[in-house]
Amino acid sequence: MGNRVTFERAGHGPVEIEISQGVIAGWTGRNADAVNHHIAELAEIGVPAPSTVPLYYRVSDLMFTTAARIQCLDDTSSGEAEPTLIDDGTRLYLGLGSDHTDRKLEAYSVAHSKQICPKPMAPVLWDFDDVAGHLDEIRIRSFIHEAGEWVPYQDGTLASIRPLSELLAGSPASQGAGRLQPGTAMMCGTFAVLSGGVRPANAFRMEMTDNRLGRRIEHDYHMVSLPVIA
């Protein structure tokens, strides 16, 4: 059995999806310069460069959650807002997730750092067919809570990420014909930080806006630090 998560299917009501495998697509920028910039900003905190781009990391299906509170070891982690594809076997959805990552562990291994933290998800999904024709227009923004206020952290449109159809086709969970294997949740990459560099934050807010259809998905969550006991 996988991880059963209940979402609101926009315009249709609740849908319960059993997530049975998780994939994190990394280094997915459409522009090579942007990818190199992201590699460089992570190198500043000791993260090794990828062996190839894009890469598909695997994470436990239990990591995906719509909870407003997560728990992570220490206070060295932060979020990354990402478009997320979910296939329940009946249809493909577009959602909004955060590839919450332990920045200290990332310097040792990107794969390990992605596995150790929960992957918060906004509780609303859009039918992929409804947005497939204008994906590049969809905008994602994120904010972190610093010094008592929400500070803009990321801002970009899906035009700066490789086409989702391309990422889907290259995924180890691809089923062909523009679909993922049933029960798959796949995060599809993120944007460079606006200023200040990649850094930990205990509170994260993200939003995905579709101006063509006049709608928005929003979610914020708080991270509780657990002590590291030696």
Rank of each mutant, 00 (worst) to 15 (best):
E80H: 13
E80R: 14
E80Y: 11
A81C: 14
E82M: 06
E82D: 03
E82L: 06
T84P: 08
D88C: 06
D88R: 06
G89E: 04
G89W: 09
T90V: 14
R91G: 10
Y93E: 03
Y93W: 11
Y93A: 03
L94G: 01
L94P: 02
L96H: 04
S98R: 10
D99C: 12
D99I: 13
H100Y: 12
H100R: 09
T101K: 01
D102F: 08
D102P: 07
R103M: 13
K104C: 11
A107T: 12
A107W: 02
Y108D: 11
V110R: 09
V110M: 13
A111S: 13
K114A: 08
Q115P: 00
P118C: 02
K119D: 02
P120H: 04
P120C: 00
P123C: 01
V124M: 09
V124T: 15
W126T: 09
W126E: 02
W126R: 03
F128C: 03
D129V: 14
D129K: 14
D130C: 03
V131M: 01
A132R: 15
A132Q: 14
A132H: 09
A132I: 11
A132F: 01
L135A: 07
E137R: 15
I138F: 01
R139W: 08
R139H: 14
I140D: 00
I140N: 00
R141K: 11
R141E: 10
S142W: 08
I144P: 00
E149H: 10
W150C: 02
V151Q: 06
V151E: 00
Q154C: 03
G156M: 05
T157R: 08
L158K: 04
R162Y: 04
P163M: 07
P163I: 10
L164K: 09
L164C: 09
L164W: 06
S165H: 13
S165I: 11
S165W: 03
S165N: 14
E166K: 12
L167S: 10
L168E: 01
L168S: 06
S171N: 05
S171P: 11
P172V: 09
P172E: 07
A173R: 05
S174R: 09
S174G: 12
Q175V: 00
A177W: 10
A177N: 15
G178A: 04
R179W: 11
R179G: 01
R179S: 07
